[in-house]
Design a protein around this nucleic acid. Structure first.
Lengths: 143, 143
DNA sequence: CTGTTAATGAAAACATTTTTCATTAAGGGG
DNA sequence: CCCCTTAATGAAAAATGTTTTCATTAACAG
């Protein structure tokens, strides 16, 4: 039994084919997937998979912090598996490929400064970087 | 003629009542507004205002960097006026009030580190902090 | 003031997300 | 290993958010 299956069992959730299909799609994805994309890929594993179930499964996975929701430039919500530790997302604006990176002390310093200046208590943050991956930089260096 | 009106004139765009209504709503807002909210407020100035025009006007304002688009927790897109300089948004998760703050060197340090580690060229970023403003901290200290 | 044309707004198309409810199947107890 | 309970599912429809279409309006140059 894999780690995510154990986590489901631990909170009295069942391990079902639809959930396997959604997790499978996310495991093989190399960039954040929209719910519709997860449906398309998941159906290769579980033909009867429905879009509603994809939404519900993502909601569950979010609650268990198995997946992270990222802001895609096309407006849709994108979903990626969470890596261990606190990570942020770096998206290539050409091919959509995403890599995660850990948040360093730099951000904590900045957050503390902002807390001091504003009086707010900051307890969460969303950091996403956009740019071009190595391959896309070479492909269209000045096009 | 105000600064934004000059900017519109400079790019051969007309200064219209709908655009005045949208800008008016944004000027008086104290937190990011969704298009529908802008419509409601804008109609107090220009009764005939339509939602489509709100979208088109926001698109124009975005292109001119008069407004910034922020990711709201309810899933909608929120729009706020851009402050001079490079700013980020800090949202109160209770009352929705937003303040902007300038991005410091800390973030540049982090970005350079990530560029080095991944090979990506980073040219844009989205940083939003979530927390509680001073007032909401006092109101519900442990509720 | 008038003509040109950018801009507008209503309706409809489209996309995304949520709700409803009858049916299915996961997995514990016998 | 089978049966039963009920969580989970999926189709349809509703709700919500965004974009397109196109006839009409109004900004502003002349």
């Amino acid at each position: 039994m894999t780690a995510w299956e154990q986590q489901l069992t631990a909170c009295d959730c069942r391990i079902t084919m639809p959930r396997r299909a959604v997790m499978g799609a996310l495991l093989e994805a190399e960039s954040p997937l929209a719910p519709q994309e997860i449906l398309d890929r998941g159906r290769q594993v579980h033909t009867r998979l429905g879009l509603v179930t994809v939404y519900r499964t993502l909601e569950l996975f979010l609650r268990l912090t198995l997946v992270r929701r990222v802001h895609r430039e096309d407006g849709c919500q994108g979903y990626v598996l969470t890596s261990p530790g606190h990570h942020h997302v770096l998206l290539c604006r050409d091919c959509g490929r995403a890599v995660e990176f850990p948040g360093g002390d730099d951000l904590q310093v900045l957050i503390q400064r902002v807390e001091g200046e504003t009086g707010y208590r900051v307890d969460e943050h969303l950091l996403q970087l956009f740019g071009r991956c190595t391959a896309c930089q070479q492909g269209e260096s000045d096009a």
